[in-house]
């Protein structure tokens, strides 16, 4: 074999190895994308589908986020809706009470700057951007207290912006809900 030949074949080998690796890389990526699509569609773990707006300077005057409408509410179908707002440097309500093993819709917004809601030990995690309403579905499988810090810098008091979530059993929640109105665990 001449030197020319070995040179030619080594070029070929190199190109083949490289092509193979490229194929593996592409397969890894396609598999990842399919997995994400599957989880998103099949298990319905999609982010919030719709964009809803609201005027932060009028939150306290009218509409969904007036003070008397904040907190947890038992719906006719047994589900629960929680409405909350974030403002420098607290959440209202500061303590959210919800039943265990129940589909819950969290609807929240900000009254001033960007905040975030994160419930520790769960995958509940959303931004609160003033002007827009964040909606997240959640379901707790364990009763107990959870910390709920603000997860985005919102100016000099950010480190003090911690709320709480109290997950109680269903009968406890149903009893609390009997009186009507919006529930919270502030001061308990």
């Amino acid at each position: 074999m001449s030197a020319e030949d070995t040179h030619g074949s080594s070029v070929e080998v190199a190109a083949r190895v490289e092509r193979r690796w490229t194929a593996i890389a592409v397969i890894i990526i396609v598999a990842m994308a399919l997995l994400a699509a599957f989880a998103g569609i099949h298990q319905a773990t999609m982010p919030q589908p719709r964009v809803e707006t609201t005027d932060p300077s009028r939150l306290h005057l009218s509409g969904e986020f007036v003070e008397s409408n904040l907190g947890s509410m038992l719906e006719a179908n047994g589900n629960v809706t929680v409405r909350a707002i974030g403002q420098q440097y607290s959440f209202t309500p500061a303590c959210i009470v919800v039943p265990v093993d129940t589909p819950i819709t969290l609807r929240a917004t900000s009254a001033d700057v960007v905040h975030g809601i994160l419930i520790q030990g769960t995958n509940v995690n959303t931004m609160l951007v003033p002007g827009y309403i964040s909606e997240q579905l959640m379901r707790f499988t364990r009763t107990g207290d959870y910390l709920m810090p603000c997860q985005e810098f919102c100016s000099f008091g950010h480190e003090g912006m911690w709320g709480k979530v109290k997950v109680v059993d269903k009968t406890n929640f149903a009893n609390r809900a009997k009186a009507g109105g919006r529930l919270s665990c502030v001061g308990q």
Binding site: A33, M46, R50, V51, G131, Y132
Partner: peptide
Amino acid sequence: ADPQVGAGFKFIHSAFTA
């Protein structure tokens, strides 16, 4: 985790990220 974009464009960007 933002409320100002819908799920569609988030999905597209997620796929391109791969």
